[in-house]
Design a protein around this nucleic acid. Structure first.
Lengths: 194, 194
DNA sequence: ACCTGAACACCGTTCAAGT
DNA sequence: ACCTGAACACCGTTCAAGT
């Protein structure tokens, strides 16, 4: 057989395609190998494990949607902007939210959202002084990400159930998202004021 | 071979044992069958699918920890109590948080936490009147559950990494949990007052 | 550097047949 | 009602060997 040679970037791009067309459950090493016309074992030349491959796919998905920077905006607007970016980026690909959340939870890659949120929250008044508030940026960032990933995953699940014809009413996810995010932002503002 | 006969309850109880001792990844139909001295196909007499089995296990885990009832307490204390209950119940078994969160996300079983939170939030002033606040109990309940499940899953992951010797410092999860929950509760109180 | 081929140790699920 | 036995169509990963 003619040996087809790829490099890492090409494999990741193809994995994103497989994910978007067939979903996370079908993104297996064997399936991706078949899609590339290559033995599954060949993928282990590019990635040490499936987890590492998934981490690269998650990072690629996040990089493909630009994080709008607003360096002079108030901290809470920055936080809202980052959360909207994470939502948009993960909703742009099938099972994107679940994938990025999973990768973040096992601690490889997908750390840009967390770091961006911590940086924005550090700009809130009072978070650098005082003992009680000392870890507020980190705890706040995790609380926000749990919400964003959870909400986006739910939304994507419902969207797919709807497109499979199982459910009639389509989710109006944007409004829900704004309300939930607003609740957490109100709580953060109250903590910062204190 | 002598045919060993079980009924549903026994199978679920054994599944909880396997989960707690070997983790969610090792809770397979084949493994559970072996543990019961039975062919994997025998389990399909009791459950239509693995998802259904997992749903039963999730419900069992929630039932084994009692939800403390406080009918006369203020709504926000009730909410905090329910969240603490979900955290305690899911942390009591290995990978409990991830399992219950997963079952909840695919819409079978594990709905008691959601319903209890919605009921408590409906008791907050102003949530039954007005158009804007109309869905606040539902959105609030989902926001809280995304946080509780996300936080508990993280905590359980870190606990296992620590016990596997990978990480030195142990998480002081309780304090983090209280802060994150406090942020969301502050936000909910602010929305209710408005 | 990149890939093959074969193997190892697994999965969930179905279904005819047994008691 | 509960279970066996066999099969189907899959998994992730390793490793010697090829070019």
């Amino acid at each position: 057989m003619a040996a087809v040679r790829y490099h890492r970037e090409t494999v990741v791009a193809r994995a994103v395609e497989v994910l978007d067309r067939f979903g996370l459950a079908d993104l297996s090493m064997r399936r991706l190998g078949t899609e590339l016309g290559v033995q599954p074992s060949a993928l282990y030349h590019h990635f040490p494990s499936k987890q590492a491959l998934l981490a690269a796919v998650a990072d690629e998905i996040l990089e493909r949607t630009l994080l709008p920077t607003a360096p002079d905006a108030p901290w809470d607007e920055q936080v809202a902007g980052i959360c909207a970016w994470v939502r948009d980026a993960t909703l742009a690909y099938r099972d994107g939210a679940e994938l990025v959340a999973t990768v973040w939870s096992f601690g490889l890659g997908a750390s840009t959202p967390y770091e961006a949120l911590v940086a924005a929250l550090r700009r809130a008044p009072g978070t650098d002084t005082g003992v009680e508030q000392h870890e507020l940026p980190e705890i706040g960032a995790r609380t926000l990400l749990h919400f964003v990933f959870g909400h986006a995953t739910d939304e994507q699940t419902q969207l797919q159930a709807a497109s499979a014809g199982a459910i009639e009413d389509l989710p109006r996810g944007g409004a829900d998202f704004a309300v939930g995010l607003g609740i957490i932002l109100d709580g953060l503002r109250a903590r910062v004021r204190a």
